[in-house]
Design a protein around this nucleic acid. Structure first.
Ligand SMILES: [Mn+2]
Ligand SMILES: [Mn+2]
Ligand SMILES: [Zn+2]
Ligand SMILES: [Zn+2]
Lengths: 132, 132
DNA sequence: TTGATAACAGTAATGATTATTAAATATTTT
DNA sequence: AAAATATTTAATAATCATTACTGTTATCAA
């Protein structure tokens, strides 16, 4: 452990934030988390939500998913997976595509670029919105 | 043409902004475009850059590429392609992966989701940064 | 040439996120 | 257990990218 590493103590707020992200499949935003926990922890501050989200990110317990224009969303699923994003209602659904690793290899063939991770998002219309 | 559609007049500023994005392979940001054109058009305003970028987006002449945390970048390459993003220097390089369409089909099999487009970004270390 | 309106520059406002700070908690040491 | 030490919190201010507003100028069809 380097001198710069911080030892994080446990905190009720951080635990609740993590649990909420894990329980929800919504890929919630900071403000959504804040509003959801406000009732249970009335003293909660939005700054605390953001600070703890960054700690959870640092600890590798969650991932941040940034979408065009909108604010960041957070994901407690840390296994490699991808997203289906509805352009009408904004819903974000998970999808698992094992064959993506083949594309990795293709990418590495031509370019001398050391890939550490990737993101792949599909945009379109979800089943629900298509029915309307 | 619906009543809500706007007829865009030509403007020197917008043409210069578009040309710059097309000539550069950099995927430049709004502020970078602003600084680059300031010399040629001293009266140019950053708001004008943003407004015209949105018009060009609406016209489908450019694409916006949002990266985690940083500000938006713009791309005059509208053919489907993907990106290699260096996590050290922030450089954005283009890469063409024809086999991605196979993954599309896999995605469509399971879920009833009508995909209109997608994005795929690879993060890692570029050749230049790896040498240092 | 003129009337309508898009585009302009300048500036203010917005919205998401981060930084600051003093008080409240939690942990470690006496 | 009490004191000393370190971390977290809530509240608030600051920052940064982007958008909205306003009065003026440029474009273009009639
Ligand atoms: Mn997910
Ligand atoms: Mn590109
Ligand atoms: Zn939908
Ligand atoms: Zn690099």
């Amino acid at each position: 452990m380097s001198v710069n590493d911080v030892v994080y103590r446990k905190s009720r707020q951080r635990q609740k934030i993590y649990d909420l992200i894990k329980d929800m499949q919504n890929h919630p935003t900071a403000i959504w988390i804040y509003n959801s926990l406000k009732e249970e922890i009335p003293s909660l501050s939005l700054g605390t939500v953001y600070r703890n989200l960054n700690i959870l990110l640092e600890q590798g317990l969650i991932h941040k998913v940034s979408f065009d224009g909108n604010c960041d969303r957070f994901d407690a699923r840390i296994e490699s997976h991808h997203h289906l994003i509805c352009e009408k209602c904004g819903a974000v659904d998970d999808i698992f595509l094992p064959r993506v690793s083949d594309i990795y290899k293709d990418a590495l063939k031509d370019k001398k670029f050391k890939i550490t991770h990737h993101r792949m998002d599909f945009f379109g219309i979800c089943e629900k919105c298509a029915k309307k």
